[in-house]
């Protein structure tokens, strides 16, 4: 249930090898202050390696993979701090074949009227570059063509400059309902939670690696600070919090792929825990870098924003733990 097949292993290894090299500290720092979170080099890599089409059905030229494979990619995207609309696009591909177009999801609000789509939906990732958006209505999921009029994504900003959020404004937009009914809305939100949990685990791993590398390089009192027991113990505690985390999102992803009832609780548990560990890791990583860590265009900042994003989008840990308690019958 938590194990990967050979292709998934290979995907993780490939992305681990390529993505961080495409996103060196200077490039990430530049994105923090740029007008857009678009990064052509890493997007091209995701396109060429087939990551963006992983969940597209085989008939549509994709790989027909599920949430687990996407989550494996999301962990590596989190490790590398991949900017832009990866999350929204791959979530959309779980429900619709975008036919080569850029897509995203707008799940921040369920639209009450499924016939005439009107109103605003907050927290749309990668919306400014998208041509298609999957929205949630009382009747289920629907897909809206952003080029057809009656719908646009406004603004792009928020707590994570590497993944900016826009607001979808609908004014009687034409839409095409997708199969699955209202249950499919909940399923897609759960999938979003799993991908955020995987991103958080990858981000936390990167914070640990950054802090370890800094401790080895940085010399004070005539020797690397990695030699000081206080630093070593902080790093060991952080490693202990992070090392076992992968199983939580893998289990939830497997449940979503098999349609198991437990998926809802497992997804909430994974995101609650792993996003909280990521916040801790980001803060510890800042502390261990000293003033360099507290610098805007320093090496840690991209993951601070990402940790806050993973923490808050689609349910904070406190909200998600209530879902888990209810799901386990403790309510």
């Amino acid at each position: 249930m938590t194990g990967l097949d050979d292709a998934q292993w290979a995907l993780a290894a490939l992305l681990h090898e390529t993505l961080p090299a495409l996103l060196p500290p200077a490039r990430l720092a530049a994105i923090l202050d740029a007008d857009t979170d678009e990064d052509p080099a890493s997007w091209r890599c995701l396109t060429e390696t087939g990551v963006l089409d992983l969940a597209v059905p085989v008939a549509g030229g994709g790989a027909g993979e599920g949430v687990l494979t996407l989550a494996v990619a999301a962990e590596e995207a989190g490790y590398a701090a991949v900017p832009g609309g990866f999350l929204g696009h791959v979530l959309a591909t779980l429900t619709v074949d975008p036919g080569g177009r850029r897509a995203t999801v707008a799940l921040g609000q369920v639209l009450p009227d499924a016939r005439r789509l009107t109103g605003t939906v907050p927290f749309v990732p990668g919306g400014h570059a998208a041509e298609l958006v999957v929205v949630a209505t009382a009747a289920g999921l629907s897909v809206v063509d952003l080029r057809a009029g009656g719908a646009l994504v406004e603004g792009a900003g928020g707590v994570d400059p590497t993944r900016r959020l826009g607001t979808l404004v609908l004014d009687g937009a034409a839409h095409e309902p997708l199969p699955g009914g209202p249950a499919r809305v909940g399923w897609l939100v759960d999938a979003a939670r799993v991908l955020l949990a995987a991103d958080a685990h990858g981000g936390a791993r990167r914070c640990l690696d950054l802090a370890v590398a800094h401790a080895r390089d940085r010399e004070q009192f005539g020797r690397p600070i990695a030699g000081f027991q206080a630093v070593r113990h902080q790093l060991a505690d952080l490693a202990t919090a992070i090392a076992p985390g992968r199983g939580l999102y893998r289990l939830a992803a497997g449940h979503l792929d098999s349609g198991a009832d437990r998926a809802h609780t497992a997804a909430a548990l994974a995101k609650a825990h792993l996003s909280e560990v990521f916040l801790t890791a980001a803060r510890d990583c800042v502390r261990l870098h000293g003033a360099l860590g507290y610098t805007w265009d320093g090496p840690v900042n991209p993951w601070v924003g990402r940790a806050l994003f993973d923490h808050a989008l689609h349910g904070t840990p406190a909200t998600l733990r209530r879902i888990v308690a209810d799901g386990l019958g403790w309510g």
């Binding site: 076992p244 199983g247 893998r250 609650a272 825990h273 308690a325």
Partner: peptide, 19 residues
């Protein structure tokens, strides 16, 4: 309940870590 679910996550992740 919040603290119990937090603990449940730790126990669950150690179980899965074995796998």
């Amino acid at each position: 309940r919040d603290e119990l679910v937090g603990l449940h996550a730790l126990v669950e992740q150690q179980r899965l870590a074995g796998r």
